[in-house]
Design a protein around this nucleic acid. Structure first.
Ligand SMILES: NC(=O)c1ccc[n+]([C@@H]2O[C@H](COP(=O)([O-])OP(=O)(O)OC[C@H]3O[C@@H](n4cnc5c(N)ncnc54)[C@H](O)[C@@H]3O)[C@@H](O)[C@H]2O)c1
Ligand SMILES: NC(=O)c1ccc[n+]([C@@H]2O[C@H](COP(=O)([O-])OP(=O)(O)OC[C@H]3O[C@@H](n4cnc5c(N)ncnc54)[C@H](O)[C@@H]3O)[C@@H](O)[C@H]2O)c1
Lengths: 212, 212
DNA sequence: GTCCGTTCGTGCACAAGTTCACAAGCGAGT
DNA sequence: ACTCGCTTGTGAACTTGTGCACGAACGGAC
């Protein structure tokens, strides 16, 4: 795979790529066949130079005087991000948040499928949901390993989150989406992204109330 | 207010502060009275130098040889971030996500209170929820202005999000927490933070599947 | 009172990330 | 075939952010 020969790509670039994919997809769906870095930059809210620099880490995708072919650039980035396949995901915690995640229909159209759900509460274990059933957290490591799952979502209380993360990592998980408001301690090969609305709000109050 | 004399603080520093507050609060609750930048750094997963540098933007909070007083540092940062008060928040969209947000009990203990909820669907308008009722999106701008709300949460479909953001901003909102998968166009004095689990997952697949 | 281990706050050097600016390439029009 | 307007890809300059390393300060031990 080509990716192995491009080892030094900054993480911050990788984080922007999904935004490019999303925007290009929207443009392509609106029958916009070509787009310049300038137009794309306007749409996304970054500079044109940044888009060109980001893409240059992976190759040459544009044509001078013309811009980029919307659909083929979208597909190129999709491939770079390995979004051209479906990833099975393990969900830990089937409380109110876990419930919402399991029913969220945004995963379907994207490249992710909830393939296993775990909860510690015996009342919830066994409950069927679509094609799968809720399993005991006891099985987490072995079931994740059996299914070859590499992505985990943590939706348990903060006090349990580290323990759950450890079990997932033991099973082979390398990417964790963490909804619990706690910093997980993980080995360097495991990547964690936080989803924390309170944190997000707390980063904005600083700026409030000064100007009118 | 002292803040007006510290104009050049990088946003990335502000984004870390809530993490410090959260961690200091947990330590104080465990009756840890003092903490060094080294210990705190371990807990949070950043370097000690970074913590000291971040804090130095705002003043001197530590004692040499001793470290920081856990509780008073927590309170100092809480004050810097203006989290020592309660902020009323407007929620737009009372679908499945909006429902989950409105019932999420994490806002209570923090500095935020859902003070108004808006939905376009006439069936939902009027429905009572705790102390408040769902209002029509027609009233959004005026009601937000009337209540002096400066923070908005967007939980409507992507196609409606920009329009809703505009209405909020017209009412005086300066901070938006956006759950819709779209880049909002806002004036420079308005700050937006994205909550998008799919995006977060898409930034991690790049790294998967190479090493075992 | 002095010593000594600890830890802060910060000047400075380095690293990372962004933007500028321009040569080169493309294609449409004549 | 040539010109011309447009846009890419990228070296180089610049900006921003991080980490090191050390003087200064604190407090406990003796
Ligand atoms: N509800 C929200 O909108 C929201 C938003 C952001 C973050 N969060 C965070 O997400 C977490 C969960 O929130 P919630 O509202 O769903 O709580 P909840 O109490 O409704 O659900 C937690 C679930 O996790 C299960 N659980 C506990 N320990 C477990 C373990 N070791 N293994 C497997 N399952 C286990 C429990 O049985 C329960 O079903 C919390 O940390 C919360 O702060 C929630
Ligand atoms: N459900 C999730 O877990 C989740 C997670 C992340 C992001 N999102 C995103 O959040 C958004 C909402 O998701 P959902 O599942 O709640 O959808 P939903 O269809 O259940 O709810 C949308 C609600 O918004 C209301 N609405 C529509 N236009 C409006 C307007 N102009 N003003 C006020 N209200 C309006 C609708 O009446 C409806 O009640 C979507 O953009 C989705 O992609 C959802």
């Amino acid at each position: 795979m080509a990716r192995e020969f491009e080892p030094d790509i900054p993480d911050i670039v990788i984080r922007r790529l999904p935004l490019y994919v999303r925007t290009l997809r929207a443009l392509a769906d609106s029958d916009v066949a070509n787009v310049s870095s300038d137009d794309l930059a306007d749409e996304i809210g970054v500079t044109a130079a940044q888009i060109r620099r980001d893409l240059s880490y992976f190759g040459k995708f544009g044509k001078q005087g013309k811009g980029y072919d919307t659909r083929s650039l979208e597909q190129a980035i999709t491939q770079i991000l390995q979004l051209d396949r479906e990833w099975p995901v393990a969900l830990a915690g089937f409380g109110s948040l876990g419930h919402a995640i399991a029913h969220y229909r945004g995963f379907g159209p994207s490249s992710f499928r909830i393939a296993a759900i775990f909860d510690r509460n015996p009342d919830k274990v066994g409950e069927p949901l679509g094609e799968i059933a809720i399993l005991s957290d006891q099985c987490m490591t072995s079931e994740i390993r059996r299914l070859g799952i590499e992505i985990g979502i943590i939706a348990v209380p903060a006090a349990e989150a580290q323990e759950v993360a450890n079990a997932m990592i033991d099973g082979g998980v390398q990417s964790i989406l963490n909804y619990a408001p706690i910093v997980l301690k993980t080995p360097p090969n495991v990547r964690v992204r936080e989803i924390d609305p309170i944190w997000a709000l707390q980063t904005m109050t600083y700026y409030l109330g000064v100007g009118s």
